Simulated assay, not measured.
Amino acid sequence: MQTDEQRRLLGAFVRARRESMAPAGASRRRRTPGLRREELADLAGIGTTWVAWIEQGRDVRASAPTLARLAVALRLSRAERDYMFALADRRDPDLTPAFPAEAAPPALAAAVEALPWPAYGLDPAWHVCCANAAARALFVGLFDGETQPNLLHYMFLHPAARALLPDWHARAERLLSEFRHDYGRSLADPRVRAVVERLRADSTEFASLWERQAILAHEGGARGFDHPAGGPLNFFQFTLADVERGDFRLVFLRPA
C-alpha cells in the first residue's frame, strides 16, 4: 500500500529527473529547466495529466507498464528505476533475471572466502554457487562428484544429509519452507522449476511437504550437526541477501 510519503517522494523524484533533462533539438532559453511535462508525456506515451498528478503526489496509482514507459523516457539508471518502482509500490515488469546466472556474484564469492567459518552462496535455484573450505568439510557428501551441487537435492536425496543432521525432518521442513519463500520471485527461471520437478518426482517426502504450502522467512538460528569426523557440532546460522543480486543468498555458520 503506497503511503502519502511515498507519493510525495515519487513526485519530487520524477519532477527532478524531468527538469534535469535537456530538451531535444536546438538549444533555446526557457522559463523552466529541462523538459516540459507535455514533452515527457509524449516521450513516455502517457497523458500530460498523469505526469502532473504523479509529480503532485496524488493518489493515482500508476500501473507498472505506465511507470516502465516513464522510466525509459526519463532515461533512469537501474538504481534509479528500482527506487522509482519502490516508491510507487509496484513490481517492475522488466525486472527479470538474466539466464544463465550460475556464477557467484563477485561480492558474494569474496565474502564466502573471507569468512573463517563455514560459508556458502546460493543462486535462485539453490545451487551452491560458491563455498569455502570450512563449508566443504562440514557438509559431508554435498560436493562429492557434483560440479554444481544443489542444497535441496542434498537434503532430500543424499543419505549423508540424514546422517549429518540429527533433526533431519525439522531441518528439511524448514529448508523447504524458506525455499518456497523465494520461489514466487523465481518462477521465470527454468532451473528453479527443474529443481522442484525433479524433487517432486524423486522424493515422496519433498512432494508431501511441497503440497503443504508452508512459507518461512530466512531467520537463521541454532543448527546442530553430527559430523562423522568432528562429532557433535553446534553453530548459529545467518542468511543474508547478496548486495549485487538480491536473488542470491549468503549463508554462514558461526560456531555456537
Rank of each mutant, 00 (worst) to 15 (best):
I54A: 08
A125P: 00
A107L: 11
A64P: 10
L199Q: 05
L43E: 08
A201N: 07
R7M: 08
A111D: 09
R36S: 12
A125H: 00
V140K: 04
R8L: 12
R191D: 02
P190M: 02
A64W: 12
D202W: 05
Y183I: 04
F225T: 08
F85T: 04
W126Q: 01
A131C: 05
Q237V: 13
A104K: 00
A161Q: 04
L250I: 06
E173T: 13
L35A: 05
A131K: 03
L216R: 14
F236P: 03
V112R: 00
P33M: 14
F252R: 04
E197M: 07
S208R: 13
L233I: 07
H181G: 07
D182W: 06
Y154G: 00
G184T: 11
E5A: 11
A104Q: 03
F156R: 00
Q6N: 14
M155T: 13
S27G: 15
D123G: 03
T147V: 13
A137C: 08
A110I: 03
D182I: 05
R171G: 06
A207Q: 09
R185C: 13
D92H: 06
G57P: 02
M21C: 10
A119R: 04
V192S: 01
A188N: 05
P124C: 02
D182Q: 05
E39G: 10
R61C: 06
S63C: 08
R36L: 12
P118G: 01
L138Y: 03
S208L: 12
D144H: 08
L74D: 07
R36V: 10
T96W: 05
G25W: 09
A12R: 11
E244V: 00
G11F: 08
D202C: 05
A170K: 05
L142A: 03
